[in-house]
């Protein structure tokens, strides 16, 4: 167990293992995304109340779910880097922020496009939309703080503290649906108890959620590999890698 944990802290090991994971994970993810999108767009029946505009659910819900989960990943990586001073954890934390911000942006934009035909307006100040907007600000705050420090080690620790403080916001996002009356429909997937969505619509949605999680993992690993190369450019193993590459 602990040897695995220590290996995670080693740049060459992580670089090599992430390369071999990505070789399979990335094509599989893109395939799942493609299948899920075509399935959701063309092969599912329309919703009896919202008609065809509900098809946006297949990208809106996964993006929102993964954007939220991404914040937890970032905060966890931040906690690990603060406690064990692990270099790879602060690379992971710093790489989470732009991906999470991009997914939050996707969730907001698709939600707004969905709102126009459904509610007749582009933007509604309801609890969940507002919380997603706050989440976007939290991500952007972490990115801005990281960029403001010249000393990158200190930047990583400062961002770790900030992301841990920001997790206070996450329960509020979840609870906001109960707290405020809003136009937003209550969450319709429950893993405990009966789901209110028909299986023919549920399966593509679950596929898309899985695909978005996998995409987050891929993007995170890809960013981390680039960042590792940049930070370790003067070390022996990177030179060896280059020579092997050149041959």
């Amino acid at each position: 167990m602990w040897t695995f944990f220590h290996k995670l802290g080693s740049p060459p090991w992580l670089y090599a293992i992430s390369g071999s994971i990505l070789k399979y994970l990335l094509p599989a993810t893109l395939l799942a995304l493609g299948v899920g999108m075509v399935w959701g767009l063309l092969f599912t029946p329309p919703d009896f109340r919202q008609g065809d505009s509900y098809r946006i659910i297949y990208i809106h819900v996964p993006a929102a779910a993964v954007a939220l989960a991404g914040y937890y990943v970032m905060a966890t990586a931040g906690a690990i880097s603060l406690i064990w001073k692990m270099k790879m954890a602060d690379i992971a934390m710093q790489c989470c922020a732009p991906i999470g911000a991009a997914l939050t942006f996707v969730a907001l934009v698709t939600g707004s496009i969905w709102g126009k035909p459904t509610w007749g307006t582009w933007w509604v100040w309801d609890a969940r939309i507002t919380s997603m907007l706050i989440l976007l600000f939290l991500y952007l705050g972490v990115i801005a703080l990281y960029e403001a420090y010249d000393n990158k080690a200190a930047a990583a620790r400062a961002c770790a503290v900030l992301s841990l403080v920001g997790t206070v916001n996450i329960p509020i996002i979840y609870k906001s649906v109960d707290w405020w009356y809003s136009l937003h429909q209550p969450a319709s997937i429950k893993f405990t108890g009966e789901s209110s969505i028909h299986p023919s619509m549920l399966y593509p949605l679950l596929l898309m959620i899985a695909a978005f999680y996998a995409l987050f993992a891929c993007a995170l690993l890809l960013r981390m590999r680039a960042e590792i190369l940049d930070r370790e450019r003067r070390t022996g193993w990177v030179r060896k890698l280059l020579e092997a590459d050149a041959v």
């Binding site: 767009l41 008609g51 065809d52 505009s53 996707v106 035909p117």
Partner: peptide, 16 residues
């Protein structure tokens, strides 16, 4: 898509 096509396809395009 019964008039919703522009919204749905735009959302998918931006996401992609």
């Amino acid at each position: 898509m019964d008039g919703h096509g522009a919204f749905v396809w735009a959302a998918y395009a931006i996401t992609c």
